[in-house]
């Protein structure tokens, strides 16, 4: 009798876990399904080539927002990737166990948990107010701050996988520590580090909150990096909360493009560079 109850309970609990997994995946397919359905209908060539049209008119596109997102992600990568990788090198190659590196590691972890809108506020008060205008530079800088801790962590994880004997082989050949790091350790971990960087890029390309009051948004092409600039996420937000049907459709189409971009980067990062991990 008791045996029977135990088995029944086992079966019940295991089914609950399976059910939880199914429930967790429902929203994923719900969101992706609707984005696909509504986005595909609104997607056409004009979307990629045209500027937004005035409210209520059809035929507008998001060309400037797509380019704006690319520009700001590029700025963020140019700052965030080198800083993140170099800091990651310090934490694994020079100083693994001191209180200083523990503090940096801890701060990195905590920094990943800071709401992204906070970064927007800080860049607004420190950069936008000082320079006197919203700009692509400010937006890129905000995204870079979000990127740095992500890259540090992934670089660190990857460098830790490089076995010590490889480093020792370098030293044994009389190669200096710096050269061993740059010419032997980094290339060994390169694939993993690139994967981490790509995941960080995917992560920041969807960020909206830090761009709201740094890059602001723009209905036209930005003529320089020192001007307000459009971005896909901010444009989607503005269109989604507008009362116009044409703009809602553009928001769905924009979401589809954004999600595809992010999923492709994610998949590329995971599968193109997979050989190292397995």
């Amino acid at each position: 009798m008791k045996e029977y109850i135990r088995k029944y309970k086992n079966w019940l609990m295991l089914s609950i876990f399976v059910a939880a997994t199914i429930i967790a995946l429902v929203p994923l397919f719900g969101v992706l399904g609707y984005v696909l359905k509504n986005g595909l209908g609104a997607l056409n060539i004009q979307f990629f080539t045209n500027l937004p049209k005035a409210m209520g008119l059809s035929g507008g596109g998001m060309a400037n927002a797509i380019v704006g997102t690319l520009i700001m992600v590029l700025i963020a990568s140019l700052i965030g990737i080198p800083v993140g990788i170099l800091a990651g090198i310090y934490l694994t190659e020079y100083d693994r166990h001191s209180w200083f590196s523990t503090a940096v590691r801890f701060a990195t972890d905590v920094l990943t948990g800071i709401p992204s809108i906070i970064v927007g506020i800080v860049i607004y008060t420190a950069v936008v107010l000082k320079m006197g205008n919203f700009s692509a530079l400010a937006g890129g800088l905000a995204l870079a701050i979000i990127m740095i801790p992500l890259i540090i962590r992934s670089t660190e994880e990857m460098l830790k996988l490089v076995s010590h004997s490889i480093r020792e082989a370098g030293y044994a050949l009389g190669i200096s520590k710096g050269k061993t790091i740059l010419k032997i350790v980094l290339p060994t971990a390169a694939k993993g580090i690139i994967t981490g960087a790509m995941l960080a890029i995917a992560r920041v390309s969807g960020e909206t909150a830090p761009l709201l009051f740094t890059a602001l948004g723009n209905q036209y092409w930005a003529r320089s990096l020192n001007e307000p600039i459009a971005s896909l996420p901010v444009q989607i937000f503005q269109y989604a909360t507008s009362p116009y049907k044409e703009w809602h459709q553009l928001a769905w189409a924009g979401s589809l493009v954004l999600i595809l971009m992010i999923i492709i980067i994610n998949l590329a990062a995971r599968f193109a560079f997979r050989s190292r991990h397995s």
């Binding site: 994923l28 984005v35 995917a202």
Partner: peptide
């Protein structure tokens, strides 16, 4: 499944919002 759950985290917040509205 692990990848799918991670994808749930990769969907941008603003897309969740759009889906939420409509």
């Amino acid at each position: 499944i692990g990848f799918l759950v991670e994808m749930l985290a990769a969907i941008p917040s603003v897309v969740y919002g759009l889906w939420g509205i409509f």
